[in-house]
Design a protein around this nucleic acid. Structure first.
Lengths: 192, 192
DNA sequence: ATTATCTATAGATCTATAGATAATGC
DNA sequence: ATTATCTATAGATCTATAGATAATGC
């Protein structure tokens, strides 16, 4: 009994699903969603492609699970974010190129027509901009030192994070992602 | 004679190729490179898939032509760029969502392993960062008002342009791309 | 001769369905 | 009974090659 008595079928099934989602994250990082085959994901967890479909009935269902996984990492309540934690987050991200690559690839694909992650990203970015505006408001009030409102600074903050990720993924030697991000935060904090 | 006397075979062939590249740009915008089929591109120019392969012997050759096309737009010599022209460029981009979508989709895909555009984008971004550092140096000298060197501000400038494009493509109603970019330029120009 | 285009097709995938078999858990 | 997994396979693609035919240009 490889799993021990305490682990019932429900838990084991959930673990299997989690294992599949992890494999999907990897394969998507390597090939994107369109390029990721169910067979490649299945192989990574020692299943046939058809065996995988027992857990996720369609490829899109697997993508949905991947996106839900992403949402769980943001589980820190938006109100608890602070500007200095953002710098730490970017530093942390720089140690996890795989995950960053997965979602950078998905974001890129998502702008194409009818992509199954398009709505997810549209909603997510809207939410993230709002959260970032909240973070900036908590730090600076209604005006940043530069004179920008939190609502106008938020899309810039998000853009810098994403844009730096692409540059860094393509050329990690040339791009100091955390350093550049700290530069940007300093810029936001400086008075006009 | 639908082309007139003056147009010889060489020119006609070059026009056909240009037509195919334009169609490829469109299809890539809609489905990404991996999702773009030669048949879909061919159909758009009234050819069979095999007819298209007469002009571009492989799918990758067509992608190379697409990327070369991109390079031609940057034909403005780097030394002639100025910061205020960047704002105008972003404004212009906001009127051409198709092209922006093509290259945002390609950039996203390019971070995946062995993608045929990966090297292109790595090289391109390195070059663009250098050019942008030059533009900033021409404008501000060795230090921007904030105290940043041109080399450290350049990746931020590039990141903002790219990152705003994704947000804007996903949700053009919510994101004022040119306005946000001008905000960023103002930030760069402000003293610490 | 060369160029442009087509039909036919090989060979590789890919997702998803159908249905069998083995293992697990009330 | 239900869950996990497999084999078999349908049906759609997709890229690329082979080779024919028609049109164009020295």
């Amino acid at each position: 009994m490889p799993y021990g008595d305490a682990m019932n079928a429900r838990v084991r099934s959930a673990e299997r699903r989690a294992e599949i989602v992890r494999a999907a994250l990897e394969v998507i990082a390597e090939r994107g969603y369109r390029g990721a085959s169910l067979a490649a994901v299945a192989e990574r967890v020692g299943l046939t492609q058809q065996g995988l479909l027992h857990y996720f009935p369609t490829k899109e269902a697997l993508l949905v699970a991947v996106l839900e996984e992403r949402d769980q990492w943001d589980a820190v309540p938006a109100t608890q974010w602070r500007v200095d934690l953002l710098a730490a987050l970017v530093e942390y991200n720089a140690m996890r190129p795989g995950i960053i690559q997965t979602f950078s690839a998905l974001l890129g694909e998502s702008v194409t027509e009818g992509h199954p992650a398009r709505e997810y990203f549209t909603d997510r970015y809207r939410r993230v901009r709002e959260n970032m505006a909240g973070v900036l408001r908590a730090e600076y009030g209604e005006r940043l030192p530069s004179g920008l409102t939190p609502e106008r600074a938020a899309p810039l903050l998000v853009a810098v994070m994403d844009g730096l990720q692409y540059q860094w993924l393509l050329d990690p030697e040339s791009v100091d992602m955390p350093g550049a991000f700290r530069d940007f935060l300093a810029l936001l904090g400086e008075r006009a």
